[in-house]
Design a protein around this nucleic acid. Sequence first.
DNA 1: AATTTTCCTTGATATAGATCAAAATATGAC
DNA 2: GTCATATTTTGATCTATATCAAGGAAAATT
Lengths: 244, 244
Amino acid sequence: MTVDLLSRQNCSDCPIRHRAVCARCSPEELDQLERLKTYKSFKAGDPILWRGDTLTYVASLVEGVATLGKTMEDGRTQMVGLLLPSDFIGRPGRSEIDFDVVAVTDLTLCCFQRKPFEALIGSTPHIAQRLVEMALDELDVAREWMLLLGRKTAREKIATFINMLVQRQHLSGAENDKRALVLPLTQEQIANYLGLTLETVSRQLSAMKKEGIVQFSDRRHFEVVDFPALHMATGDDSDGGMLV
Amino acid sequence: MTVDLLSRQNCSDCPIRHRAVCARCSPEELDQLERLKTYKSFKAGDPILWRGDTLTYVASLVEGVATLGKTMEDGRTQMVGLLLPSDFIGRPGRSEIDFDVVAVTDLTLCCFQRKPFEALIGSTPHIAQRLVEMALDELDVAREWMLLLGRKTAREKIATFINMLVQRQHLSGAENDKRALVLPLTQEQIANYLGLTLETVSRQLSAMKKEGIVQFSDRRHFEVVDFPALHMATGDDSDGGMLV
DNA sequence: AATTTTCCTTGATATAGATCAAAATATGAC
DNA sequence: GTCATATTTTGATCTATATCAAGGAAAATT
């Protein structure tokens, strides 16, 4: 019943397929995965993992949105990742986590006990290989975000964030109205993701509405009206993104 | 002859051992690695890889310092990684790189052709497993840096940077004067790493000298005089770091 | 439907760090 | 050793964004 809106795949069967982890698995291997798997549900706002927690599971996000965040002693916080369906949580070969994972919406995880999962990796090179690629993909995303956090202006940050939502939601199979997009976070959470304050996020978003770049139907749903202007505003591209 | 100052290991033999990639390799596997391996040298300032380059090699940094950087169309740049001896360059399973790798000092790489290296991974689970762990370690570092870039003050950034140098150089086997540390970057490069301008770096470093936290013997060599104050200045710890 | 709470907007003001400018110091080349 | 270049320091000013403050709109709860 859980159709993964963001990964073009029905994943009620074997959620770890999300990222094609087991595209090349043999029937026996799939069977093994099948037996390890359990589902867990969380309510919006629930902490899934806390910094320092022992990792007994690795998991694949089936439905919903979660954030990865780091918090400083004095309360300043920085989001370091946004988890959408098909994303992977956990670190084979590591028993502790050093950031917080929090459910933003109600969500479902497909969990595998870490130990047997690691054993499986140890004997199945192509799964390990796939995990390397996934980790390196995440690393690319993190580095792109470092550029954003270190060098972009508030306006560029917002534009880049919206553009990322466009990309991740278009890549997905969501065959709804092509332009209808979901804003999964509050403005405070967006501020946390972008290294800004919520007031700055509000002002920049208002400006982009006024300029007719984006249009909101309600707080959580919007569409991009002027793609070239959005592209231009990201700072990634000196021209209007026409070449891409 | 090339003794790796930063990894407690003599690595003239099999540089990929740096990160214990092949600690569990059989003699035949070591032999295979041995045959794939070539050394390449670069001069300070040389570009090693350019964004968009095709990756024909993966490599391990034997000696010297290199930076990973991203550049925007208008010239703004953000360093996204600092490579010290024993660090790994390259992405098994990926043929293109999307940032620049530049030699900061003269350096030596130990290179393996990507294709055969990937084949080796495909048939050797424990190497693949080790690479997953390495990629996840890098991801942790990148996320820690995201917190720094998004939320820390200029002073906290500088203190954190110095503290990172202490940690990486102490972890290494460098059994020279315990306090003598190398500053491998110019202040402009540091600014690039921290999302600041060079003037701000200069001012903050001067302040920390004046306060007696650090002391420079020359531009590239310094020692930390007051560790508790340094810890305090990183912002990571509300107390003076006494508990760590 | 009324009330509470959460989320968003807008304005006024402050400030950390950027930018502009210039001199002082190193470093390297010849 | 001198000249040229790269790097660092310091000062004056500016500005983007934070901070402080308060009201309004939506959502959730009763």
